[in-house]
Design a protein around this nucleic acid. Structure first.
Lengths: 204, 204
DNA sequence: TGCGTGCCTGCGGATAACCACAATGGTCGG
DNA sequence: CCGACCATTGTGGTTATCCGCAGGCACGCA
């Protein structure tokens, strides 16, 4: 796991340097790349922090890099910098989940504030994702049978009915049920229902 | 409850007419207003459909109208039309929840598609909101005591413990618990937990 | 004052859930 | 072949939940 930093991608050295200094003055660590290709080559899914991408660059553009990163499962909050007021581009980027879209020349303080906000969002998303991952990990430990029983428990069915549906003895259902609670780290079906409903509102 | 229509707000009669014809050709009913003020005067919270707002108008602007409507709890998907590529405005509008931001001159088919998509989203939101409202209504029927018991049931506590905390007999808890299930229309604590967790992930 | 409603309680029984103890049989990898 | 893991089942007992039946107390409204 790398540290949380601002990842700057811009083909203009002056901008890279300016941003680096600006952020440092606000106690935000950063690293810069001079092209989308260079960043993509270094990209690792465990990077944390935020992205600051220039729209127009030699070679791959900022939005294109953004798309590639999305495809690779990158969820870092992304701020676009542009000197060309391109509305459809901005609207498209925001709708795809970009964090913000800022026109050059930018106000230093404002930009730094946005970067900091983006870093904060990433941190929030991270902790939240971590708990979701923990839950996934626990679910993965369940055996097939246990999952079948769990589904029916969550449907509010009696052990008796579940036993009937699965053609097994009620005692067996009790055992599975108990193991599910144990593995999932809950003490009752109510707890389990709430945890799953919160983390996966529409999936399972 | 009014029917779902596209609500057009533009001070240019030519545009209003053109949009009306365009949408009619796609079987979308619409009504037009020649100013933000006029629409605001007619606005009712039970309006359904979508909004198509011009950015620049005599008097109140589209974005300002949007803000006023938000303040009044309007959640109709809103499409902004603009001839002036104003990036910060577009970004701000999208981030505030605008459905789309389209530059004039617009492509007829594209705009109609977006309007139809907006209408569909409104319909989805409506049905979803309806169930949430039903749930709220049911919750409102609970007495104070019943709510107190419900909270604790959802916390996975035994009736015995709940009785202790509330300084009442276990039998009384059972009665309240039973009434809660009855009023909420569920058959078990598990069902209740799931319904509430889905509809109100972070509130109660 | 009578009625409705909310809140409280007890008794007793049916049903469901939870659990410790104990055991059988199958699969899979070392 | 053995150990680990999984699915399965039984016995017997404790605890919880769910309900019908019955009743009491307080408050506010007609």
């Amino acid at each position: 796991m790398t540290d949380a930093i601002a990842h700057l991608v811009d083909d203009d050295e002056a901008i890279r340097d300016a941003l680096g200094w600006l952020l440092r003055s606000r106690h935000v660590a950063s690293r810069a790349w001079n092209s989308a290709e260079a960043f993509l080559a270094d990209y690792r899914s465990d990077m944390r922090g935020c992205l600051v991408l220039d729209i127009r660059m030699q070679g791959m553009s900022g939005p294109e890099l953004f798309d590639r990163l999305l495809a690779r499962g990158c969820h870092m909050p992304t701020i676009f910098l542009t000197g060309h007021g391109d509305v459809p581009l901005a609207v498209g980027a925001i709708k795809k989940g970009a964090f913000d879209f800022i026109e050059k020349p930018f106000n230093d303080n404002e930009l730094a504030d946005r970067v900091i906000a983006a870093m904060r969002r990433d941190a929030e998303r991270f902790t939240q994702t971590a708990s979701a991952a923990t839950l996934e990990a626990k679910l993965a430990l369940l055996t097939t049978r246990e999952r079948e029983v769990m589904e029916r428990v969550l449907a509010g069915k009696f052990n008796k009915v579940i036993a009937d549906e699965l053609n097994i003895a009620m005692r067996t259902v009790e055992v599975h049920r108990s193991r599910v609670f144990e593995k999932m780290g809950v003490r009752s079906a109510v707890d389990l229902a709430q945890i799953l409903a919160r983390q996966a509102p529409r999936s399972d």
